[in-house]
Design a protein around this nucleic acid. Structure first.
Ligand code: SF4
Ligand code: SF4
Lengths: 137, 137
DNA sequence: TATAATTACTACTAAAAGGTAGAATTAATA
DNA sequence: TATTAATTCTACCTTTTAGTAGTAATTATA
């Protein structure tokens, strides 16, 4: 019952980039060291973020990464979507998901609320929101 | 962001056994067919449930499974604990978990509520509660 | 133009989760 | 006692996730 390692890394990476965005480009070495993410694994994730156009990369010497759009336009859920970790409306605690209202288990109604709260948390929190507050992780 | 396949199976299995408990023992073949769980995988899970003393098994011809205690005494969270799927208090969305109150990210407070609701749902729902209501999955 | 610092690409390895196969064990009953 | 229907055990296979290695491509600058 938690996000994949990759999604967690990606969120932390983007939050960190957002936080440092006024200092210019930030490179993979800096990210890996600051966030304690294995360098090689991080560069792999970065390539996906670039491909998904959340991040822009500048190659070559003095290169690095920066956000490809404003931090307020990138939602946490956009990141989760990349790694198939977004919570779908029909997702069910027991992996069924298609029981209708007349025929539901006792977890059904109890699951609606936390699910909705998490969906909202991910969909309505932008990088702008999560960076710059508290510790940078 | 969902329970492991194994945990989902285990919950459904136990709910089904609870639901049918007055009809006597139920065997692996019946469970596998009713719940669309691969037979061989199911028997592996059953062995774990027996070892954890949630289920009692009777071997040999006419054998099968039954709950080892009253359905109201087995909580969904007991099942999740077996498969390391229970939600710990310190669990954090970003896999950190040790940030203190002074230094927290913007997801921290938003995460508290769904986490608590899920913990409660799992800890306070017994097999008695989830079986016998609505469809049997 | 050579060098150094950077990202991108390809391919592999390791660990965990999910699933399968077959034989051993147990017990009812014909 | 032989048969049959059940669980248990051991070992393996497959898929997914996590992580690593090496090299190619790119670019600033000395
Ligand atoms: S009733 Fe239960 S099993 Fe069916 S979709 Fe709702 S939560 Fe899932
Ligand atoms: S502040 Fe954020 S990263 Fe730290 S424990 Fe809370 S949710 Fe996790």
């Amino acid at each position: 019952m938690q996000l994949s390692n990759t999604s967690q890394y990606a969120i932390r990476i983007l939050a960190y980039i957002t936080d440092k965005k006024d200092l210019g480009l930030i490179n993979a070495t800096q990210l890996a060291e600051a966030l304690y993410i294995p360098y090689k694994f991080l560069t792999k994730i970065m390539a996906e973020l670039v491909k998904a156009d959340l991040v822009e990369s500048i190659r070559g010497r003095d290169g690095g990464y920066k956000l490809s759009k404003s931090a307020s336009e990138i939602m946490v859920d956009d990141i989760l979507n990349l790694f198939n970790d977004s919570i779908k409306d029909e997702q069910c605690v027991l992996g069924i998901g298609f029981c209708n209202g007349l025929c539901k288990c006792a977890l059904h109604d109890q699951w609606m609320e936390p699910k909705l709260l998490m969906q909202r948390m991910f969909r309505e929190s932008s990088l702008e929101d999560i960076a710059g507050v508290g510790c940078k992780i």
